[in-house]
């Protein structure tokens, strides 16, 4: 029960960010929310439709499919990139020029613009002139524009190539911040490499991994440019992410009302998933939230019972 009043004036330092976010996010969001409730035919001809657009979006099979597809993609991205990122970070040299060189090499995909990544992969995966496409075709039939499986795997591999370095860099920074003493203590105890990873590194990496997880989830859940450039959402709609579908509705069909309702629901789901990740990962860091197991209770009781003995001992020693 921490009911003491704290000096919270430092929060005023957040105000500039609040203003920036208001201009780039909150005010546009207000506009989108307003679009979602009305059918705008012209500047002076606006028809209030209530929640009709929300109902239309929620029952649209195309949007439901895209949602399921995007969720699958995000989960696969997380399952591949987080372990791979940790693995790569552990392989990287710890100091000297090799460490700097490794950092630069790993960071290269991160500084390439999305569009360029898409175009590079578009050419790379062509089955007639692309290096990757021709090579894979030697072993198995590979055609991006015909096979839905090929298209899906390509998007997944491309995203892994583009964004695993982010996880790697974050984890690498996290690993470097673990004091050497922990490793020495583990070595004295004769801990195996697996045990060091499980009980020393993983708990220390938790916060960094949470950031990586949130960033990767949000980015992959709103992935747009790469699939748009490489596959255009096809073949059919097999790689059509929510963002691509949303853009088609908003700009292709100029259905601003439906797109507004869609955006708000999209926003809600990103909120929910991010909140769930954050809550689950910080569950035992919240003050007062420590789980007390029966074992801990017994320990506490034993400590209490031991105390009188100790004080008697002290008296005797005196």
């Amino acid at each position: 029960m921490d009911a003491k009043r704290k000096n919270n004036k430092a929060w005023f330092l957040v105000l500039p960010v609040v203003f920036v976010v208001a201009f780039t996010a909150i005010i546009p969001l207000m506009a989108v929310a307003n679009y979602s409730l009305q059918d705008i035919q012209g500047a002076d001809n606006r028809i209030f439709v209530g929640l009709d657009f929300f109902k239309r979006v929620a029952t649209d099979p195309n949007i439901q499919d895209a949602f399921a597809r995007n969720l699958t993609l995000s989960m696969q991205v997380l399952l591949i990139q987080i372990p791979l990122g940790i693995f790569l970070a552990r392989l990287m040299p710890k100091s000297g020029w090799k460490a700097s060189a490794a950092l630069v090499v790993v960071a290269i995909p991160l500084i390439i613009p999305w569009n360029v990544v898409g175009t590079t992969w578009r050419i790379f995966t062509r089955s007639d002139i692309g290096l990757g496409g021709v090579l894979v075709n030697k072993f198995t039939d590979y055609n991006l524009s015909e096979s839905t499986f090929d298209a899906w795997v390509t998007i997944l591999v491309m995203d892994t190539w583009h964004w695993t370095p982010l996880v790697t860099l974050l984890v690498y920074a996290g690993l470097r911040s673990i004091p050497q003493a922990y490793y020495q203590a583990a070595a004295i105890d004769g801990a195996s490499a697996m045990a060091v990873f499980r009980f020393v590194e993983l708990p220390k990496l938790k916060r960094v991994l949470m950031i990586a997880l949130l960033l990767r989830f949000m980015d992959s859940f709103m992935m747009y440019t790469e699939p748009f450039v490489v596959t255009g959402g096809g073949p059919g709609s097999s790689t059509q992410t929510l963002s691509i579908l949303l853009t088609t509705i908003a700009i292709g069909q100029f259905d601003i009302g439906v797109a507004g309702a869609f955006s708000l629901m999209y926003f809600l789901f990103i909120q929910i998933f991010s909140f769930l990740f954050f809550t689950v990962l910080t569950l035992d860091e919240r003050p007062g939230a420590t789980k007390v197991t029966p074992k801990d209770k017994r320990k506490l009781r034993e400590e209490k019972e031991e105390k009188p003995v100790n004080s008697k001992l002290k008296k005797v020693l005196k």
């Binding site: 005010i27 506009a31 307003n34 409730l37 705008i40 606006r46």
Partner: peptide
């Protein structure tokens, strides 16, 4: 510039 509606 926002086309306001009362509920929003």
């Amino acid at each position: 510039w926002i086309p306001w509606t009362a509920p929003i």
